[in-house]
Structures are given as structure tokens and as C-alpha cells.
Design a protein around this nucleic acid. Structure first.
Lengths: 142, 142
DNA sequence: GTTATTGTAACAATAATGGTTACAATGAAG
DNA sequence: CTTCATTGTAACCATTATTGTTACAATAAC
């Protein structure tokens, strides 16, 4: 199964905030308009980004703004914030037969490989910042 | 969400076949016993491995055997065979607002990065063979 | 022919996802 | 201090994937 679009929506939201003049706040309604979804979906994600310390959300007359410079937010930060994956990316069947040599050792044998695959993916995400994504907007708007 | 355990089960199954004397076949029942699941679950996965040309399955008195040397089957082959992911690993929200600069460009901007992250993961899987996993069994059985 | 086995359909339980409505709580602004 | 736009969150729904299960026809070795 694919990784949830929560992640791409979160990057979208942060990119919107990155291209918004400092001091200006965005409402979940405005962001939902750009993403083209329901404001509640945006607010749910904002809650996760807030918990991760990436944004500040003000109630009432409210809106959201970034708490870190866009260059200081990597896609890995976002990926982790939205908890698209809890713990390990790969799941391993949980109760292989311990009476079988393969059943007894498969989990440990796979663990290292799968962890390294996951790390390789995360390393790529860590190499890209929200600022870089936002820069991509500028170019193309040209 | 995590990647389905179909993948780890498939690796388990192929590892069982790899440590089985050449000429000997394994039934879905035997494999299910080692994985600790229902034989039908195994047969479904075998169908996918067969379609990918990794194993040969004989009906009737039947059973399964490898069609390639364990050293010639990478975990990427397995990953693709069980179609744990159809197409792209990351999903991107499909209808961002084209009237917004960010909505208009986010898909293209993210596409490259996410593809590279996926490629990094797959490259790791491509670097490990079923033979290597099977070797891990031997060590630990000691 | 008998028989063990595969291939597949059908069904159920569980869980995640994305969207929706509803509404209390917040707090800025008049 | 009242108003009001907005957030935070609960509740619900439809859809989908997953894993396990039963059932049974088709297969082919013996």
C-alpha cells in the first residue's frame, strides 16, 4: 500500500506557509482551498505539525505560521510529524514457527536489511527542505 | 501505514525453498507451518511469485521449487513480485487547486524528490539476495 | 480411479484513509 | 463585554487493503 497523502498534503501546507509573507497567517480554509480538500483534514494535519514544533496555530481570529525557517524544515521532519508510518516502514509477520530454523531466524535476518532500506529512504527526505520545494514553485510560476 | 507483511512472508517462503535440497518440493501446508499462517495465504503469495517467474508450482502431488538460484533473486525482485506497492510508494493528493501557484506546481515539485527516495529504498533491496538471507539462517542455527 | 495438492472464489474481521457535519472553546476586534 | 471568525475535536461514513478462513473444482501423480 502507498504512503498516505497526509505527507504530501503536509508538505503542500508548509510550502504555502513558506511563500506567505512573514507576519501573515493562513487559515485552514484558505489552505484547504489550495489543497482542494476539507478544512478539517487540514486542521488534523496542522495539529500534527504543531505537535512536532513546525508551526504555530492561533485560535480565534487565527491562522497558522511557521515556527522554523523553511530551510530548516526537511521533508523527513514532515514525514515524521505526520506519522504516516508508526515505527518501522516494513512490517514483518509476527509469529513465525520457532521450531523451524527459518521461522526462528527470519525476523532477525530481515530486520537489518529492512532497516537499512528505510534509512536510505529517510536520508533522501532529509536532504530536501521546504525552502527547496518552495523554490520550485517560483521557478515554475515564472 | 506499513508495507504489508506479504513481503516478509514472501522472503520467508523463498528462504525456505533456498534451504531445501534441490529436487525436493515444498507444499503450501509445510510453508504455512513455518510462517505460521493459513496455507491459502501462502498460495496467494506463491501465485504472485510464480507470475514473476521466481518459482514453479506443481499442482496435484505438487509443491513448489525455485526457478532461479537464490543468489539471483534479490529482495527487490520479491518486493515487486508481491506488488506490495502499485506504482509509486508515495501518494500525492490528486487535485490541488490549479488557480494557486503552489497547488499548480506541488505535484511536479514533489515528484522528483519522492521518486529518488523510493529509488534509494529499492536500491538497498536490490543489494540483498535470498541466498544472503538464507545464509543468515545457517549462521544462527549454528 | 484415488488422492493429495493447487487455484480461486467468497466471506468476515480489522484497520487506515479521506471526507463530512457539528459544535464547544478560543480570543481578537469593535 | 459582546460578536464572530476560527480552531480543536468528536462522531460518523464510505471506501479500501489486509489477513485469515471455509469451500470446492481442477490438476496430475501414483
Amino acid at each position: 500500500m502507498q504512503i498516505s497523502s497526509r505527507f504530501s498534503v503536509a508538505v503542500h501546507v508548509l510550502t504555502l506557509l513558506a511563500v506567505t509573507p512573514v507576519g501573515e497567517l493562513l487559515t485552514s480554509d484558505r489552505m484547504a482551498g489550495s489543497v482542494n480538500t476539507n478544512p478539517v483534514v487540514i486542521r488534523r494535519i496542522l495539529g500534527q505539525l504543531k505537535k512536532a514544533g513546525l508551526v504555530e496555530v492561533r485560535a480565534a481570529a487565527g491562522g497558522t505560521y511557521l515556527r522554523r525557517a523553511p530551510a530548516d524544515i526537511t521533508l523527513l521532519d514532515v514525514y515524521r510529524a505526520v506519522e504516516v508510518v508508526e515505527g518501522d516502514l516494513f512490517s514483518i509477520h509476527d509469529k513465525p514457527n520457532p521450531k523451524c530454523p527459518v521461522g526462528r531466524n527470519i525476523q532477525v535476518a530481515l530486520d537489518d536489511t529492512l532497516r537499512r532500506a528505510q534509512a536510505a529512504l529517510e536520508q533522501q527526505l532529509a536532504g530536501v527542505s521546504v525552502a527547496q520545494v518552495a523554490a520550485g514553485m517560483g521557478e515554475l510560476v515564472g
